[in-house]
Design a protein around this nucleic acid. Structure first.
Lengths: 393, 393
DNA sequence: CAAGCTAAATATATTGCCTGAACAAATTAT
DNA sequence: ATAATTTGTTCAGGCAATATATTTAGCTTG
């Protein structure tokens, strides 16, 4: 529990991390800038940079490329360092029940390749399932022009509790297959380190990184499509709970005016079907409900009102206990859910003393893969100096 | 955001923290033990110890005191170091609406002095209120035989949201007075650093330290007397939320079978009064209800059943979303609440898929002061090398 | 009781890393 | 061209930790 002891050699590692962190957050950094941002001396900064160049993490720009730099500063031109963003890649996976989506991103997090693969059927054997995931990864890598050896880490999201150590409870018969099975398979096939996480948790990471929750440290993301699930960031850290089930919303069964953890799309379908449906008697798609409401259809509008009331109660219950600064509605349904925001926002103060800002995610159904990329990058950044890069040049 | 850079001199500080941490958790530590626990060389360990002795944090035992040591080991006798637990003290305050309780503890956390002071009336002016708190502190110190100068930090709990920085929202008219007013007063009078926290949060710290949640990293403590409030430890860290309102239970208004955040004592009173009361028609005290139930009184037993059902729902709602390993019922009512445990435990699986262990706190109404002491000690331990000790020898 | 054994403390040399200052280099301004 | 300016490079110095050898303190034993 007490602080770990440290040796002089450890300083270099800490300082290298520090410099690398600054360079990562900067487009191009000069030695002088690095001195200012890290507090180190020039000599130390340069020594660290040389080291990072040797290891392949950063790159020195040609002195002569400063033409477009705009500011013709005087004095000796600075050496300029930038992240070698192609030194490696990460994979972000969204392991759905029916589909796997893989995204390849470089070290800056720019997505450079994608691929989606559907499972043939629901009950296919584990080996086939793993094979489909592997194919999605390979195709995404091919799309990015990257080799499997270039993958430094794989983040993967699934719709089940995942504990802090990235393990899926064995009681989750279906999903635990993805844990041991998939992890070891990808490890053995490609040598990849696979980091599992709950999909809503990854959505929260993604939303804070590239979504409407940019920079918000106390953020809740509700994956709200079929089944409600929450990813909770408190003080910038993901909540897991003892067995990774933090953010599960089974308690909604007990909440008045809610009664289940059904999501927006699911409810829209149920309710439009129950009401006889606007056009046919069949089960209208969730999207159709929102379209009809936009067209002024009264039955659809009534459903939106019910959805707003329900979501307000859901958000209020979370906001009351967690007190986030912001709650984001995410998932494929997020875009449609925008119309619910005024209603939700208006109702919130009725249900909680601490109403948060409520937004919808701009990330669409990429929210989990974006978060998975972030999760993998977090790992890579934390372990940069332990990871060996496969340099191709 | 990136790691801060470090210089060689900083190593000494880190290693001193490390050694001090080990000594704190050990009764008496020898150089060899410290080497094993910290990974440092003997020379380094000894150098750090000399430094810590000079600063007053630790003390070397006389070589000749090893008589009772039991194991007459061979070889050169080891130098033995122990925490100088009387090098300073901390104060733990429970700032109630009607009463202030102060506890004085040494650096090991052993409580060596206590005092309680009641406020003359509810609406007394701020200055008088602060004066009463100050008197409680002085008397507790006198009780401990400690001087105000020896106080290294003051932890203080109050029944309002307190954010991560120990600030009370100004919208809390009553309690915000304790923030600026009390903090600056104690700072100016005695030079004390006052660390405010929510009382339920401190209860959680206290319970994990000295209660039934010893060592549990995912722990929820419910202060359950008059009004329910939760302190949540997730992965060993307290949850605060954006404005410190994490753990507030206003959402219970919306939970079926609960409907309010009234606590056990409050409900026992309400329900026994409504039922005509077992003996008189008046408002029976909460304690009386539990006594009557123990005597087999049917009306009282019915009330306990209702309480069990209600608490099961409350605990289930928290357990569902936070997934703690354990939930502790704390506060003055905890002892009585023991009889509710079987009922609660039996009902839990009906309301949540992830039922936690449920216990009652053994700390009684000292739970907040114990937590406040722990909170203050956390600060002292984190800042040990920055704090100057007032050495009296 | 002296010699021997053992575990721990101390002393000394060495290494790693950062700093600071002096010096060199590469530009722009005069 | 020369000065001014900014940055890069080199090297001695300091600090902290390690490694190794030596000394010390108590116990054991012949």
């Amino acid at each position: 529990m007490p602080h770990a002891a440290a040796t002089p050699q450890l300083l270099r590692r800490v300082n290298a991390q520090s410099v690398l962190g600054v360079i990562r957050n900067t487009d191009v950094a000069t030695g002088t800038e690095l001195m200012a941002r890290t507090g180190l001396t020039r000599a130390s900064v340069i020594a660290v940079c040389e080291d990072l160049i040797r290891r392949g993490w950063i790159r020195e720009l040609n002195v002569r490329d400063e033409d477009q730099h705009g500011s013709p500063r005087k004095g000796r031109p600075a050496r300029r360092f930038e992240l070698n963003s192609r030194a490696g890649f990460v994979l972000g996976l969204d392991l759905g029940a029916a589909t796997t989506t893989a995204a390849v991103a470089d070290l800056r997090g720019t997505v450079v390749g994608r691929s989606s693969e559907r499972f043939r059927a629901a009950g296919i054997p584990a080996a086939e399932r793993i094979d489909v995931v592997d194919r999605a990864c390979r195709r995404a890598l091919a799309d990015a022009g990257a080799r499997p050896e270039d993958v430094l880490a794989v983040g993967a999201g699934l719709a089940a509790p995942v504990d802090r150590d990235g393990r899926v409870l064995v009681t989750q018969q279906f999903w635990s297959l993805f844990d041991v099975g998939l992890r070891t398979a990808l490890q053995e096939l490609h040598g990849w380190t696979v980091l599992l996480e709950n999909d809503a948790n990854l959505a929260a990471l993604g939303e804070r990184w590239r979504g409407s929750g940019a920079g918000v440290d106390d953020l809740v993301v509700l994956l709200a499509g079929e089944r409600l699930g929450a990813g909770v960031l408190e003080s910038g850290r993901l909540l897991h709970g003892r067995h990774g089930a933090a953010g599960e919303m089974g308690y909604l069964d007990l909440v008045e005016g809610v009664g289940s953890s059904d999501g927006i799309a699911s409810l829209a379908r149920q309710w439009s079907a129950a009401g006889g449906g606007p056009a046919a008697g069949g089960e209208a798609s969730a999207r159709r409900v929102f379209e009809d409401a936009a067209a002024g259809e009264p039955a659809a509008l009534a459903i939106l009102d019910r959805l707003s009331d329900r979501m307000a109660r859901v958000i209020a219950s979370v906001a009351s206990f967690i007190n986030p600064e912001q709650v984001v509605i995410g998932g494929a349904v997020a875009e449609s859910a925008g119309v619910l925001l005024p209603g939700i926002t208006a109702l919130l103060p009725r249900f909680t003393a601490t109403p948060p800002r409520v937004t919808v995610s701009p990330l669409g159904d990429a929210i989990v893969t974006v978060g998975a990329v972030r999760h993998a990058l977090n790992y890579v950044e934390a372990n940069a100096l332990e990871l060996e890069l496969e340099l191709r040049h």
